[in-house]
Amino acid sequence: MNEKSARILAAVFLLGGLAALGISWRLGQADAVILHARMPEAGGWTPADLTVAAGQPLRLRLTSDDVMHGFAIGQSDQPAVDVEPGKVTNLTVIFDKPGTYTFYCTRWCGPNHWRMRGAIIVTGERVEQPVTPPLYAQLGLDIDARREAQTIPAGKPSTQRSAEIFAQFLLPSAQSYLSPGYYRSRSPEQVWQDLRDDPHWVHYSDLQLWDAVAYIWQANTTPEALAEARSLYARNCAACHGESGGGDGVFIGGQVQVQGEAHGFPPGYETVLPTDFTDPRHLLAVSPAHLQGKIIRGGMGTGMPMWGVIFTEEQTWALVSYLYTFQFEEVP
């Protein structure tokens, strides 16, 4: 082989190598899914369903056709990314477990922002896991029934006030009051009534018993859970329910009209206002299981979104305990 043909050969190899690189890059681009975001009234996500095999990378090229949106996947640690018009956000995600995941918009892009969701179907061999229904279903609670507390405290119950009464919880007879099973299935009002009827607690005043109810609540949560729930609430709930829980979020003016039947109202269209968590007559009458059920399932037509596919079970319990901070004096 002379020098000239060696050179040609080298050049051919070089070109071939470059071409292969280019092609593989193109292929890598080609298997990326272009996901368009639009306001829900204009179509939401397109495509709205994505499919990928477990363990395989899902490459996304996200862009917006109108305003700023965000992208996140429910029940995952994947941080949210912004999706902006005129820009492309590249994101690669891998799912280990087969199943159906929900992706959703994380920027308040319009009055129907919370309806902006899509599904990712992850295929693969499924290990059948027994599904436990949520607690409200196990208890057979009707979470659409209206409840109103008959007994409410004269002041805000506090876990800081009556040290003496909390010593009671060290007694074996009081232990069962602190169990999660008890706490979650009873409304604060029922807990108060149970204590009132208990001969061990007969010496305490009504307000002291309310302090004991707050103590039971606090024993079933942690400062970390409350802190996480506080930020989840600010991001996802405050626009409707209000920063201070009063049901007066900035968004209520734009609350979509909903069909009344879903909530036992006479047929026709009307607006259902977000629940006021600062109203003791309401919040003290409902159990953690009821609140969690509502959060998981949503209002089914009332304008209360369903969050079961977005939050983990732990996060829903954290949110429930956070909601009671609008009634009980907060942990310092």
Partner: peptide, 13 residues
């Protein structure tokens, strides 16, 4: 001129 910015969401000043 100051080159500063913030983003606010409804409910999250």
């Amino acid at each position: 001129g100051y080159d500063l910015s913030v983003i606010a969401e409804p409910g999250q000043p």
